[in-house]
């Protein structure tokens, strides 16, 4: 089988198949308010993408999600080191982080709504979802660190910084990459969910909420499609950046 044919089977046939299924289902339902077809949704997405508000909403949501990713990853990373090296920190922080991990995102959104301004909720929620994932990934990395390399660092009189730079960080990099990829997906979904429930003025979630209230199902589908496309695109970019960092 030629490589062109293989690529066609792998990349072109599945989306065409599922778009076909979607169109047939839309015809079968026969009510665009319940299930608009892919052509209607595609048309709405193109129309929305032609407005400044679409890109400003996308930019604002991305900003909040990345802010959440940043603070969640930094705090999760710092806590992983703290709980690894200090038993008292492990005793105090680990159960709390596990509680955060087990708490449903909706409970957090409603609780955080009581404590913070509405505009801050999405990035606070995104960070809260990221923190336990990064903490867990780095904690397992720290636990599986090669003790022989750490002994080498001591025997060869490496300073703490040198040990961190030459042994800890390179050893932890695969764990951090895997954790960040998982965390990004969570941050993105939970951030948009928070925007839907507590909509700021400019946000993808706020537009979804508007579409739902106005029974604009095609818009609801179009925004959802935009979220999925952005998520796949950003995850791919993040994966490439992390892989490039690992090779460097």
């Amino acid at each position: 089988m030629g490589s062109t044919r293989k690529n066609l089977l792998k990349y072109a046939i599945p989306p065409v198949f599922w778009l076909g299924v979607w169109q047939i289902a839309a015809w079968a339902v026969g009510q665009p308010l319940l299930l608009p077809g892919p052509l209607t949704v595609g048309g709405r997405l193109l129309a929305l993408a032609g407005t400044a508000d679409f890109w400003l909403s996308v930019g604002a949501t991305l900003g909040r999600v990345f802010l959440g990713l940043l603070w969640g990853a930094l705090l999760g990373g710092a806590l992983a080191f703290l709980t690894h090296f200090f038993p008292w920190a492990d005793a105090v922080a680990s159960p709390a982080i596990r509680v955060v991990r087990a708490t449903p995102v909706v409970s957090f959104i409603l609780l955080v709504y009581l404590w913070t301004p509405r505009t801050a909720i999405p990035w606070v929620i995104s960070g809260l979802m990221v923190l336990p994932v990064v903490w867990g990934a780095l904690s397992s990395g720290l636990n599986s660190l090669d003790g022989k390399l750490l002994e080498l660092a001591r025997a060869y009189r490496f300073s703490r910084w040198k040990t961190l730079a030459l042994i800890y960080l390179p050893s932890l990099r695969p764990h951090l990459s895997a954790g960040l990829l998982t965390a990004f997906g969570l941050a993105w979904k939970s951030g948009v969910a928070a925007e839907v429930l507590c909509p700021p003025d400019r946000a993808i979630g706020a537009r979804i909420q508007q579409a739902k209230l106005g029974l604009e199902t095609a818009d609801l589908f179009a925004w959802t499609l935009a979220i999925v496309a952005l998520s796949l695109l950003l995850e791919g970019l993040l994966r490439r950046a992390l892989e490039r960092g690992q090779k460097a």
């Binding site: 022989k148 390399l149 002994e151 080498l152 025997a155 030459l166 042994i167 390179p170």
Partner: peptide, 8 residues
């Protein structure tokens, strides 16, 4: 010098 190379 350790028995294993312990290279990074």
């Amino acid at each position: 010098l350790f028995q294993e190379d312990r290279l990074l």
